[in-house]
Design a protein around this nucleic acid. Structure first.
Lengths: 199, 199
DNA sequence: TTTATTATAGCACAGTTGTATTATTTAAAT
DNA sequence: ATTTAAATAATACAACTGTGCTATAATAAA
């Protein structure tokens, strides 16, 4: 009998409006009024989908992690193993504008997670999920016997994971100093140095 | 004839109070009232030293960069060159609680700099200063002939710099996953892999 | 068409924000 | 002790905040 709206779809639209506000004006400007305006809704209407502001922010942050997961799950890799690994790792980097904005917004949420246990929980989850991907890549190198016998897997996981996030943040903050191409070149070079040099 | 106060010293005290507020409650809580209370001052008094809030935040951010520079300038290094380089790079890392808090606050400012050109300017300066230190380390490796002939200096600078910042951020966000010791071990290992492996 | 229920919108309220203004207190120089 | 400029404090105000509450509009089922 009543008007029916798909709540999930509407929440996604609102969350994307939240991203837009954060990307353009900062997370401190992500007020219910500003988000409602960006989503072309009244405040009262927005609050039918998110009763509190923390709930809105939490959902908006979570949606980023879901988008990242989806992208990784949906991508299909072909070609020589080293190239596949490279492409997997490239998926972490903000190499196009969408990903760049996404990561800028993620950085804002990350900073806030330092003083918000709820957001920190989500941050921790994503951290471990991404680390797992890096771990898989490193262990693939081992099982393919691309690396030396004394290869220190655990250290190499942390090294590669930190390198990726470091490159991403540097590019977000100083795109003129660290270009997309350089980002890619560094990852490529890093993988090469991991593999044993023979012949 | 009037009461005289050292403005610079007072501003430093206020800036440190700002850090405290940001570290404990987040940058969005760094209001003039909260900072004044943390500095045990009235709002009116605080505004004798900082007439606007952006001015206060800008100064507080800048003071962090000055503290980092001071630490680097005042430190004296002795011992074998590789160890000296290691210690220089360790100086970047949040290995004690002071540095950890400092970097948490810096991360908050960094996130805000994405939507604040004034803060981004400061961020850019610091970025280039620190990159210069990394560059010096890499070029020392070359002039000491510790590295192979086909050593790609520019790529290695970006790689090492990104690695350092990535480790630092990972430790700030997930200290249980990436300990101080691991941070150090990864840097040490990275330097070793840079040097040519012979005999 | 009526009806029931959801969606939407608007208003209100108390609390917080940055900042301007004004008054008071303080202490160094006379 | 008096003077005087600086330091400190208090108050005020308009704008903005999250959120509660109420009324209206819309629409799918009867």
């Amino acid at each position: 009998m009543p008007k029916k709206v798909d709540h999930e779809k509407r929440k996604i639209i609102i969350a994307e409006a939240t991203w837009k506000v954060i990307a353009e004006a900062g997370i401190e400007r992500a007020t219910v009024r500003n988000v409602a305006e960006a989503a072309q809704l009244s405040v009262g209407s927005l609050r039918h989908y998110f009763t509190t502001q923390p709930e809105l922010l939490r959902y908006s942050m979570q949606l980023i992690s879901e988008r990242v997961s989806e992208r990784m799950a949906n991508k299909h890799y072909t070609g020589p193993p080293l190239q596949v690994m490279q492409e997997i790792l490239f998926e972490f980097l903000p190499f196009d504008n969408n990903r760049k904005i996404e990561m800028e917004v993620w950085l804002s949420f990350t900073a806030r997670s330092l003083v918000d246990p709820d957001l920190m929980n989500l941050n921790r989850q994503v951290y471990h999920d991404l680390r797992q991907v890096v771990s898989t890549v490193i262990h693939s190198l081992i099982s393919l016997q691309f690396v030396a016998n004394d290869f220190a897997a655990e250290v190499e996981i942390e090294r590669l994971y930190a390198l990726i996030d470091g490159l991403a943040i540097h590019h977000i903050l100083q795109p003129d100093s660290l270009s997309v191409d350089t980002m890619h070149a560094v990852i490529q070079h890093h993988l090469q140095t991991l593999c044993k040099q023979e012949g």
